[in-house]
Design a binder for these strands. Structure first.
Lengths: 339, 339
DNA sequence: TTGAAAGCGCTAACAC
DNA sequence: GTGTTAGCGCTTTCAA
């Protein structure tokens, strides 16, 4: 059987309270400190988290509900958060809901039952209904990447400026003389898809232009989806001179399609991709791309939830944090004006 | 404040033990059952997991330590396990150790402190030292995908027959008349790498052949790695007529390299890939590949850990389960004998 | 600074 | 089948 604080008390002749205080970083007479430390070592004492949790009603655990584990953007954020939270002695419970609203609801209620101290969610359900149990239980919530309108003020959120990201990329292409720019988006009911489309349209509007309908392809943020969307764009009677793809997996698929069609970038097609392409810089070097600050997002989310958990009844602390993206200019676009 | 069993007892006039029994699936007089259910609903009673854990010393939590979250094989297994374990009311805590032995050690000790009821590990440290704390704490362990020799008998393991997998693929190519077969492996200190190389060599030996050294490329199970390894193989003075790549990410990278070099499959190069290529069948259709039973692995691991946790002191239950792979013949290899 | 004592909410003997 | 009771191991008043 594992040693308890009682054992330490017996061995040192001190009271339980003193041991507890020491264990929680309180001030203890140096002599006693040494006494306790020796006993801890001798008995290999480790505090019982269950008892501590029962007493404090804190699990030192945070739940994360995501739509999909097999996605570069998501796993990278999880890895960063997990790192930071673990450093603060929080365990992370990840629930993949496969972009399914029912599973998402179940995941939230599971985590509430498990009494997580905080909840992080990249929402599938845009109504926010699934988060009700957590809200009612007073569990602080941080949304990632996707805002959920009806929850404004009740939760914190960390998102990127998607409108600006797409606007910058599109503007850059238009300024290079492109007017037929293909756009490959995710599913049209997803928050980021909507924002990125808005940004694309904004850029066109700035120049008093309107893109042809058929240039805007809703896909699904997967490699296959990106591949298929690019193939369609390529085979359009009036093929676009440039394409902007809005996530990592689809960028990969789109590049493969281009490769396969023997279209050279940027000679035959200008191309702007998305996200961590440096991850495989070797494979498609020198791509121009929109970069989301993935590490910063993960860190920011971790910080937010940590803050909220430290001050549980501070509803006033809820805020929406918008992070900027950058346009990394490589050599994958051609300037049509200076041929 | 949340309702407790005491509140239910007061409301129903029943004793604590009866409520507890009911909550744990015990038999209760129908009349009382109804009474309790009504009270539970009225008070929105939810059992306090902390108190339960303190009493039972069970966290209903399992820890998973993996080398890398951004990997198709790993995330797919995690998703399957997570699903099954959650159905049994277990939460899964995932710790990514980035293929770093120190981080791995820390992750294990973190999970032991969190008092997980079971531990699942795809090991980075082949000595098994990192699992000592869990072993000492009597926490059941299931290894996935990679055996750790020194731990034989002390843990369960679920692996695939890597030797056979590589042997089958290589034999198939040799029987098709190929004698110069490139092999792209992971890092040479990883269990699966060693086994797959053994399988490759076995097949050559069967035919009393020996492969040229330069055909065996140790890489790192990433897309970039696969891309680079394939490029090297392509540029060999004596280029192989076939290549066998041994994981998903590297297969992807290798195919891109082939594409880029304008080498047609199978006309200019025979190719056998690895794993869930159907995931993007659209992108590279009809590839011949070795398929690991990813779902079965996840399910098997979940079942094993569940069994071990149900019967904690049954060290005799430890077993190594080896799952078979299949060679899915597509059209990406050419038969050199019937041109 | 320290110690004694009272629980946190549940489970599991044990007696009825 | 049900009720009484004694803890699980910790934290936290409160008094010394």
């Amino acid at each position: 059987m594992a040693a308890t604080m009682k054992d330490i008390a017996r061995l040192t002749g001190l009271g339980l309270a003193t041991i507890s205080k020491y264990m929680n970083g309180g001030t203890v007479r140096p002599k006693n400190k040494k006494l306790i430390e020796d006993a801890v070592k001798e008995l290999r004492f480790v505090p019982n988290e269950f008892a501590r949790s029962l007493k404090t009603s804190l699990s030192r655990t945070v739940g994360v509900v995501i739509p999909e584990l097999g996605n570069q953007f998501i796993t990278s954020i999880i890895t960063t958060m997990d790192d930071m939270l673990r450093k603060h002695d929080y365990a992370v419970i990840v629930c993949d809901c496969r972009t399914d609203a029912k599973r998402e609801r179940e995941a939230v209620s599971f985590l509430v039952h498990k009494r997580v101290d905080g909840l992080i969610n990249m929402s599938t359900d845009q109504s926010g209904e699934h988060l009700k149990p957590a809200l009612e239980a007073g569990i602080p919530i941080v949304l990632v990447d996707r805002m959920v309108k009806p929850l404004t003020g009740k939760v914190s959120a960390v998102v990127v400026d998607n409108v600006d990201a797409a606007e910058k990329a599109t503007r850059y292409l238009i300024e290079s003389g492109h007017t037929d720019i293909g756009l490959v988006l995710g599913n049209d009911c997803i928050y980021t898809t909507q924002k990125r489309r808005d940004g694309y349209l904004n850029a066109y509007a700035e120049f008093s232009l309107t893109p042809r309908e058929e240039l805007i392809r809703f896909s699904d943020y997967t490699m296959e989806g990106g591949y298929a969307a690019m193939k369609r764009l390529i085979s359009l009677p009036q093929r676009p001179t440039a394409v902007f793809v809005t996530n990592f997996e689809m960028t990969l698929g789109a590049m493969i399609a281009l490769n396969e069609a023997q279209l050279r970038v940027p000679e035959n097609m200008s191309f702007i991709g998305f996200d961590k392409l440096d991850l495989f810089g070797a494979v498609f070097p020198n791509l121009t791309l929109v970069k989301q600050p993935q590490n910063a997002i993960g860190e920011c989310v971790a910080k937010q939830i940590l803050r909220l958990m430290a001050d549980p009844h501070a509803d006033a602390l809820h805020q929406i944090i918008t992070l900027a993206t950058s346009l990394n200019v490589g050599g994958s676009t051609r300037d049509l004006r200076t041929p």
